[in-house]
Amino acid sequence: MKQRTLKHRSLLGTTPGDLLFSEPGAALIVFAILALLPVFFSGYMIYILPQYMLFGVLAMSLGLLWGFAGLVSFGQAGFFALGAYTMGLSMKSGGGIIDPAYLGLLLSLVVGGILAAAVGYFLFSAGVRGTYFVLVTLALSIMLEQIAVSQSQITGGWNGMFIDRMSLNLGPFGKISLFDDAPMYYVILPAVAIIYVILYTITVTRFGKILNGIRENEDRLISLGFNASLYKTGVFAISGAVACFAGALYGTHANFVAPSLAGVLFSTEVVVWVAIGGRGSLLGVLLGGILVASFSNYLSAITPEYWQLVLGLLFVAVLLYFRGGVAGAVAQLVNARRAK
């Protein structure tokens, strides 16, 4: 048998030795820059950036589904809002023997994961695919929004729910207040980095490779003996848990959650972030969430009537000219440079 050297493509199409031009290398640089920002900036930027980073995590939860398994979900905002409400209710409950914030974070992972697993199991076992899956996830988002509205005695209805800012409970060593923005920033940033590392690791494992197979040709994968429904349920559960966890952190950071967080508009925005960031790359998707959400915020301030139109046009332009999003375009440039 011939012995040869084979390339192993990373998400940016590079070899493992070329770390600088690989996705993990680029991620290292991005997180280092984010870690240094509070040193040079303060005020509103350091307050709002953790929220955008959590939007980035929400985008990654969809990026994992869409970019790696080919499943487009309009329900991610529903899971995000569910996480925020879970955190709010946990903080209200006082938590019992566990710190209420930790209970909220733990429950958000469990609730999001179980709900997504249950929905995914029934949908995928019944053979729901493609557009039908999109529609069901859209309906899921709407249902969660309506539940938040109708159960006003628990959720506060349209008025929303106020959520206390969490503290970092170190047990016998006391508590660190996260009331100021910089300490909260340094709690959320590592959480985002850890989630990125976990999700990236998933994409390069056996599980991730099988997800790629589902995205490329699910019928072929089934013909090889893979239970594709099981893998799709698994990735949907992971995605739901991640989105819900990000929502829990968002709730305690923003101190507030309202039903519109689960709504169709926000769900659609998440899809736009992922498409623009580049669904083939988790880092691209994370940056898409952070940068496009920042841009949307800026646009909504300067042109409240038309910012959604501008965002929509940007989305259409990316779909027409950069189908792989910004990360896809960067990957092409890197590959072209390496081919020379």
Binding site: L6, K209, I210, N212, G213, N217, D219, L221, L224
Partner: peptide
């Protein structure tokens, strides 16, 4: 089964195609 029209993972390399089959 091999289908009448080649049914592959089109955007993956030949190596990655076979790898998926081996993974099972």
């Amino acid at each position: 089964r091999k289908f009448q029209t080649p049914t592959l993972f089109d955007n993956l390399s030949a190596y990655e195609n076979v790898e998926l089959a081996v993974l099972r």
